[in-house]
Design a protein around this nucleic acid. Structure first.
Lengths: 153, 153
DNA sequence: TGTGAAAATCAACTACA
DNA sequence: TGTAGTTGATTTTCACA
């Protein structure tokens, strides 16, 4: 991992469909050298994948909520996590320190669906209580942080 | 937006570097037809962009925290949001309903940096109080929700 | 909207410094 | 690791159904 790798990573975070030739021009290497580097970054798990980002409301998912999940005394975190993964509306799932055990982000078409979804969450064994915060607007999301990407670490 | 568009979207969310030829084979269209459709989905803002997803700790961002931001009585939400956008460590920013005005996700290299980052947050005019929840592990994140993508809506 | 064909570009592999 | 060259696939555009 050197400065060139970090440049490539930054470029691919910006545009995941950039061609190797594009990347090569940007970092001053040939396309095949970039190809080689990207392959290694993928193989070593630095680059996890490439995804199209879609406007949620365009695909009928206009309601976003952040939900804190408080565990019961006997809750098994792994089982709760597996049950959360079963719910397709749960887009992200974080195991956290503090009173709650998990914080999840949920996307659903309507508030009716949110209500139904909360019902499903509360039925999960190990879930004692939930606290729901409805997102009014997403100012930005998943923005690339290139703070350390430009440094040698 | 028909069922074929939704299939294409689902495929591109899964693999943002899929070729038009691949997508065509998957949905039963020619590459040029897919090219045409994807161009329209991009132009109409359904597909917002394509991004490589990077393992945060591989780029020196091993600490993730979710921070609730409580506003002062006189806070201007837009100004707060703009100030939050200036902080590169703030990866996502949600305006929410409830006591807090914003919930942000922050990624930093170390807990020391988290402390420094919290100091920066609290200096923002309009920010009265923050509540920080440290992420212990990310079970999954930004997972594609294809619930409605397969339907006609 | 779609197909099919053509030219330019690119991916992926191979030698070789 | 890198460049350069090669081959087959892909992108992109265009005429046309």
């Amino acid at each position: 991992m050197d400065a060139v790798d970090r440049q490539i990573i930054a470029a691919l975070r910006e545009n995941g469909r950039a061609t190797y030739a594009d990347l090569g021009r940007k970092v001053g290497l040939s396309a095949s050298a970039v190809h080689e580097r990207v392959g290694k970054l993928e193989a070593t798990g630095v680059i996890v994948g490439y995804h199209a980002v879609v406007d949620p409301s365009s695909v009928g998912l206009g309601v976003t909520a952040l939900i804190s999940i408080h565990p019961t005394d006997t809750a098994d975190d792994n089982e709760v996590a597996l049950a959360l993964a079963e719910l397709t509306e749960v887009e992200s799932c974080y195991r956290v320190a503090g009173d709650e055990s998990f914080i999840v982000k949920v996307r659903v078409p309507t508030v009716d669906e949110l209500e139904r979804s909360l019902g499903a969450l509360r039925k999960i064994p190990g879930v004692a209580r939930t606290r729901t915060t409805v997102v009014l607007s997403t100012r930005f999301e998943g923005r690339p942080n290139t703070t350390t990407v430009g440094l040698d670490a």
